[in-house]
Simulated scan of single mutants.
Amino acid sequence: MSEAAPQVLSFDDDGSFPNSRFPVLIYCEPSAALSATAEAMEAHFRSNDWVPLWRDSVFDYHHYHSTAHETLGVIAGEATLQMGGPKGQYVHVARGDIIVIPAGVAHRRVATSGGFKLVGAYPLGQEDWDVMRGLPADRPAADKRIAGLALPTCDPVTGPDGALLTLWR
């Protein structure tokens, strides 16, 4: 697959949500072949050492994961998501787009249309993801789990030489 340049979004700790020193990466329609079917997207993620675990939507409340980084591949419809918590940024995503979310970054679904659906995938070894809602009791244990997480070995979209490996180092 050819190198696709992602949109890069960064979010600081807001007191409730740790967010991350690593940026969120949004690939806008990196490949028509990749988004042809859910199975094609899942196979592509697997080829880059990301394990697809579900097909569904995004929770409609702010949340983050402290035990896994996450990739969301849009397989149908479109949506507005909010990244970074209540003071974060709204982003529009549509079929074929792929969002790579580092552990700790808050995200939620704001609005959808067209039967919005995603494939959710996680780096090998991080298939047991949790859901943190930004409660005071979540931290500092969640911060410690995030700090101990291994970085992915491949960018889920562009592979072992992809943007993630440059931007997340």
Rank of each mutant, 00 (worst) to 15 (best):
P140W: 03
R169W: 14
L124Y: 04
R46V: 08
P156E: 08
F17R: 10
G115Q: 05
R169M: 12
F17E: 06
A33E: 15
A43D: 08
P152R: 04
T71N: 06
I98R: 06
D13S: 11
Q82R: 15
P140Y: 05
I101D: 01
L53S: 06
S16A: 13
A150H: 10
R109L: 15
D12S: 12
P6C: 01
E3K: 09
P123S: 02
S20L: 09
V157P: 01
L149W: 05
D14P: 04
A137D: 04
S10E: 11
L118P: 03
L34Q: 02
V110Q: 07
Y61I: 14
A121E: 05
A68M: 00
G120R: 11
L124G: 08
T80G: 06
D138A: 07
A150P: 08
H63P: 00
W129K: 02
V58I: 15
V8P: 08
G15K: 14
V119E: 03
S10H: 11
P23G: 10
D12G: 08
H92T: 13
A103I: 00
P123E: 03
I75L: 02
T67Y: 00
D49E: 04
A68S: 04
C154R: 10
A5Q: 14
Y64C: 06
W54F: 11
R139E: 09
S35Y: 05
G148V: 14
D49C: 04
R46H: 10
G77H: 05
G96Y: 07
T67A: 03
H69G: 00
Q7T: 13
H63K: 01
D143A: 11
V105F: 08
S66D: 07
P160T: 12
V157M: 04
A5L: 15
A5W: 10
P140Q: 09
D138S: 05
A163K: 14
G84R: 09
I75N: 01
P52E: 02
I98A: 09
A79I: 12
P156L: 09
P152T: 08
P160V: 13
Y27T: 11
L9F: 11
F116T: 08
V105N: 09
G88D: 03
R46S: 12
C154L: 03
S10Y: 01
A137K: 07
A163M: 13
R21G: 12
L9M: 10
R95W: 00
C28L: 15
R95D: 02
R108A: 04
L118V: 12
D49W: 07
S57Y: 03
H107P: 00
T67W: 00
V157C: 01
H107T: 10
A76Y: 02
G125E: 01
V105M: 04
S57M: 07
M83H: 02
A163W: 11
V93Q: 00
R21Y: 08
Q89E: 15
M1H: 14
E78D: 13
K144D: 09
Q7G: 03
Q126M: 04
G84L: 10
I26F: 06
E42Q: 15
P160I: 15
